[in-house]
Design a binder for these strands. Sequence first.
DNA 1: GTCTATAGTGCGATAGAC
DNA 2: GTCTATCGCACTATAGAC
Lengths: 231, 231
Amino acid sequence: MNLESVSSLEQFKLDLVKLEQEQLLMLIEKHQNLIKVSNKTALKKLPLLFETVLNLGNSKGFSATSLRDISQATDMSLGAIYTYASSKEDLLLMVNAYHIAIIENCYEAFGKPYDSPFDNLLLSIKIHLYLSQIYRPWFYFAFTETKHLSKKNIRQSKASELKSEQFFHNIIESGIHDKSFREHSSDFSAAMVKSLLQDWYLKPWKYSNRGISLEDYNLEIKRLLTLYLLP
Amino acid sequence: MNLESVSSLEQFKLDLVKLEQEQLLMLIEKHQNLIKVSNKTALKKLPLLFETVLNLGNSKGFSATSLRDISQATDMSLGAIYTYASSKEDLLLMVNAYHIAIIENCYEAFGKPYDSPFDNLLLSIKIHLYLSQIYRPWFYFAFTETKHLSKKNIRQSKASELKSEQFFHNIIESGIHDKSFREHSSDFSAAMVKSLLQDWYLKPWKYSNRGISLEDYNLEIKRLLTLYLLP
DNA sequence: GTCTATAGTGCGATAGAC
DNA sequence: GTCTATCGCACTATAGAC
């Protein structure tokens, strides 16, 4: 992943494929004691399982989704599912771990490549929008189903939430410091950026009904920040 | 409810009490065929049941909450619960209907009392913030547990979501029309206001950890809108 | 590696005593 | 109006054949 990757959503998707494969393999190796089939078979079937967990989980809720539902939707038997995951909860944990790994890896690949804080801010926003577009089912799932995780995992999830907000916060602070941004509460503007990004994946129906594309939305955020942040 | 009521959160809470009683009674009368006890007894026990549904539902999810959990938390027997609601789903519907009725009633009580679109906008924001502060458990519940409603109720819930956004949208449009607001996409600014209001009740822990009060948050939104909307 | 059959548990809901 | 006891069902998870 590099600056070329964010030239368009399609390019971004393309560049993600390799990362996805790597992370899936790492996940399988990490859970090797629980997965009872070969890496090759797991690599083939886990994506289908993950997709199904997210689809069913987002439409009826994870706890209302039974393994029978998942079995039917994936055309796998109940027994077969238990060779890929040791329990229903384990399935949830793997789905989470897989997506978190990809997303964190993706953020780390970029950093702050520009001199101008404003450009760095716009870049992070674009990356976040692209990621939430591609992994929208997981973003939505993670938001609404956190409560089914253990306390430790809930803490972790809140921490990761704050970490990404902190990322925006730092960029904005650097802009205030070098006086390219207007003096203001960077806590609030970072939270605002986060909540705008969130709205995009929490209420996709709203924007698609209005015919607003990802690029439109990105541009509106840019207009807003130009007026709000720049002197 | 009148303009005096929004002078402070405490005043607002005080003025809500009467409305709450009225709406609870209306709800009981509407569900009379399903409720097997007198209005007086229902009036006394339903609030506790509702509160418990929201508490447990928000911490473990509604579908993972059993009637046995609710029974234990309210010190009522399983049988007793079934004299107040005819099923677990009915409990969910009543909690929703009750809160929706209060909130809609509250909005209708205000309208657009000022000449200036900006003042009207600030007023609606304040009302929304106050309501979401007081009924935070329900706002959070409604957001994360919509999926357990029937398709008809889900449609209704999205419609109500859009309706409240439309309310902001109309005020902003009137401001653009009378040139007191800058020319811009009112779709986006209305969505932005909504998503900021949402962040407040979806992530209370974030703001309380930072020591940001409701009034602070309200002021920051005002500052943002001053820069973004006014010429 | 995948299947079917089933053990064991906890659920929503009801019946009937008080 | 509230309770306890219990029915029937659907769930997670496993065992053992192929």
